[in-house]
């Protein structure tokens, strides 16, 4: 999928270059400026995620959200999901492992949902663009929604 984006980006770039050299240069400049503006925050996120995941290994997470952990486990799972930032292609296999090692389905659903929608780690980036109020509101609503989503998935899905 990443390859697809490289093909799309460089294809578009080549087309742009053929059509208008000056505009292409200014597009690259704008892209670079946008990146430079937010790069310190990106670096901060990556560093903090490293520390966070060093404490929250799959074993620790599995202990927190076992299937007999009940409603408290669902809440904890959603909190773990909210504060962590794990790429999907690691998160899903991990979630599948956690299920195998006894984590509950509703807990896993809470973890996955809040992991994707809620970004405590990305909060500083969100604030730069949209201000604190929108960032707080969006993340709070997304958090509540991820609990609801977990509840529905836990009720509907039978593995």
């Amino acid at each position: 999928m990443t390859e697809f984006f490289y093909i799309a980006a460089f294809g578009a770039l080549a087309l742009s270059l053929v059509k208008d050299r000056g505009k292409t240069v200014s597009a690259l400049k704008k892209g670079w400026q946008a990146l430079a503006r937010i790069l310190p925050q990106f670096v901060g996120i990556i560093l903090f995620v490293g520390i966070m995941l060093a404490f929250l290994s799959p074993e620790v997470i599995s202990r927190i959200i076992g299937s007999d952990s009940g409603a408290g486990g669902v809440i904890l799972a959603s909190l773990v999901g909210a504060v962590t930032l794990i790429p999907g292609f690691i998160a899903f296999p991990t979630a599948s492992l956690l299920l195998g090692s006894g984590a509950g389905l509703m807990q896993i659903a809470a973890f996955i949902s809040s992991l994707m929608m809620v970004g405590v780690m990305t909060f500083p980036v969100e604030t730069v663009y949209f201000g604190k109020r929108l960032a707080v509101l969006r993340n709070s609503l997304a958090y509540l929604f991820s609990l609801l989503a977990a509840f529905i998935i836990g009720m509907v899905v039978v593995l």
Binding site: A9, A27, L28, K30, G31, G50
Partner: peptide, 29 residues
């Protein structure tokens, strides 16, 4: 452990970020 994850995250960022910002610049212009 933290460094290991951070290195991994940096790699991910370096891989994913360039096309996003190229497309963003082109969209803008």
């Amino acid at each position: 452990a933290a460094v290991e994850t951070a290195v991994y995250g940096t790699r991910e960022m370096l891989a994913v970020i360039p096309p996003i910002f190229i497309l963003l610049g082109l969209l803008d212009v």
